[in-house]
Design a protein around this nucleic acid. Structure first.
Lengths: 343, 343
DNA sequence: CTGAAAGCGCTTACAG
DNA sequence: CTGAAAGCGCTTACAG
């Protein structure tokens, strides 16, 4: 019966069309749509058949208008640098979240807020209720967005443990400290004693925790902590290269380096190679992340795998639970040592 | 006057609150919101002041319900492999599109449809009107999604020239053929005569066009086309490595290679190095993309820059124009030769 | 279990 | 230029 204008978009069927087709009221159709409670099997079946025949798809705008929910989730990246976007980890995380949400038929809105101005605009957009919750990726501390969203009562889950703020915010993170401990223990177990470290930014949880793990293992192994063996990095390849040069100039007989990211570890390998050190014979190198950079390096990197697929699925699970009324929660996931040629 | 429940989300102000506050009707507020036509300056000002005082933000669901538009755009990736998602080009494109849309205050919905099943679900979702238009990234031919969306009358812009389908679909692409010509002319101008090529997949425009450019330049330079110098790749690093080995086995005195992507060119460098060839002295290597891989290589790659920022902004521009009623159109953007150490 | 009815917040002809 | 009114497609108490 539908009038079909060939070519352009025809008017899509509404709940009214389905009701007429099924011989029931619109209310009954709606009840079927929303779980089928208080609906007789016969009506249920008639409605389902009518939906199939008409090709009905619910109009989410109408539904959202009345429920007050948007049935969509925001993926917010508040990061001034482009670095993180170029980080392969980001891809895995984004893809994982998109897929986990797709399983619930929830679309993901990608929001990039690199500048102060954009952050203001996006925060406003979010607090106006355009998404039901936010997956927040913000590696640096001092980001006020998390606090603002929390205050506005927006369900929120962060990737990585937030530092600085003592606020109650849900997060999902890999166990950075434990991963660092595993790596440094591994280096020490190989007989290395002059173990350098290139840290991540010390205003990020990864930077702080991985360094902490390093110190703990040195202490437990009875190796004195030596400041000259600690150099800061910013997760970029270049900072790894510079860091290794600095380490070599300070401690020429260095026999291992724990590097807080694979990308930096690539830079470390370059600098060691240039300085004529052979890896792992002269210097063993351990990375962190198990990113594609780990296998692309020569030699391939021994590293700590972060469980990105689990991180993303847990972020989605926690967020949906929170939207459903649960309290916030923190999830810490285990890491794994992956041994390759660099140790 | 607003009752504020500290903590939870308070009921946001509606157009009704603004109207009361401004002393006008809701219709007048709506007119101000939608461009301010047929509104007296006095009313205009009163409404704007009221909006500011109340902190009013339009409810997009209500608006969409009546306008029939969603005021959002989908970014659809129909790609079975993970490769493209790991491609740094993808990041740049996604970020560029997000930002171009943000300038219009239009949120971007990220849609991933890697499997047949997902493609069906997403197509249904899109044709139900949940987005006003689609930015489609699908490197391989034979993807039915483009055709389905086009038939459903959904505004659509593809990244890269679609091949196979003779259908009228808008697209934005770099000038692959011209870029390839520039690179091969560059190699020939250096005196190289035995120029190999590692192609992209020949069911993609990049694969086909870049090979065509290679052949054209050989012809114009009076160099005979030699099948042994042509090996296929799939844009992966591994295929570049294998390709270079094959080339060396067939034509040991090869003096240049044009590689259809930077990632593959990295593999080519690895293979050449292992075979004891020095780059560029023995063999000059030219890549394509100017991706981060180009600078990360040793030596850094001479390559063809694809204007990704312009590609993304043009895709958005064309899509918005099409949503506004314009006909579909194709945009071809120029590439640029970037010379580095590998030639 | 089911229908009739109210209403979510907005836009847009329609009369003035 | 402006207001009153209809209506977009849906959900949800309410009364049976």
């Amino acid at each position: 019966m539908t009038m079909s204008h060939s070519g352009g978009r025809r008017r899509p069927p509404t709940i009214h069309d389905v009701a007429r087709e099924a011989g029931v009221s619109r209310g009954t159709v709606s009840r079927v749509l929303n779980g089928g409670h208080y609906v007789s099997p016969a009506a249920q079946e008639a409605v389902n058949a009518a939906i199939r025949r008409t090709g009905y798809v619910v109009n989410r705008h109408a539904r959202s208008l009345i429920t007050g929910r948007s049935d969509s989730i925001g993926f917010l990246l508040t990061e001034p640098q482009e670095r993180f976007f170029e980080d392969p980890n980001f891809n895995v995380l984004l893809r994982g979240c998109t897929q986990a949400l797709a399983a619930h038929d929830i679309p993901l809105l990608l929001m990039l807020a690199g500048t102060e101005d954009e952050r203001r605009r996006i925060t406003r957009y979010i607090t106006a209720g355009h998404v039901d919750g936010v997956l927040l990726v913000s590696s640096h501390s001092g980001d006020p967005v998390a606090e603002q969203l929390r205050e506005a009562g927006v369900p929120l889950v962060m990737c990585g443990k937030p530092i600085g703020v003592g606020s109650k915010v849900s997060y999902v993170a890999a166990d950075d400290r434990d991963g660092a401990r595993d790596m440094v223990r591994h280096l020490v177990s190989l007989g290395r004693r002059r173990v350098g470290v290139v840290t991540g930014p010390l205003d990020t949880p990864g930077g702080v925790e991985r360094l902490a793990g390093y110190r703990e293992v040195l202490a437990e192994a009875g190796i004195a902590y030596d400041e000259r063996l600690v150099v800061p990095g910013d997760y970029s390849r270049a900072s790894g290269e510079a860091g290794a040069e600095l380490l070599l100039s300070r401690v020429p007989d260095l026999d291992a380096v724990f590097v807080a990211s694979d990308l930096m570890a690539q830079g470390v390998l370059t600098a060691l190679h240039r300085a004529g050190r052979e890896v792992p014979r002269d210097v063993a190198v351990g990375g962190f992340d198990d990113s594609p950079a780990a296998v692309a390096s020569t030699p391939a990197l021994t590293t700590i795998r972060q469980p990105w697929d689990r991180i993303s699925s847990e972020m989605v699970r926690v967020l949906l639970a929170q939207i459903g009324g649960d309290d916030q929660s923190a999830v810490i996931l285990p890491t794994e040592l992956v041994r390759r040629g660099s140790t």
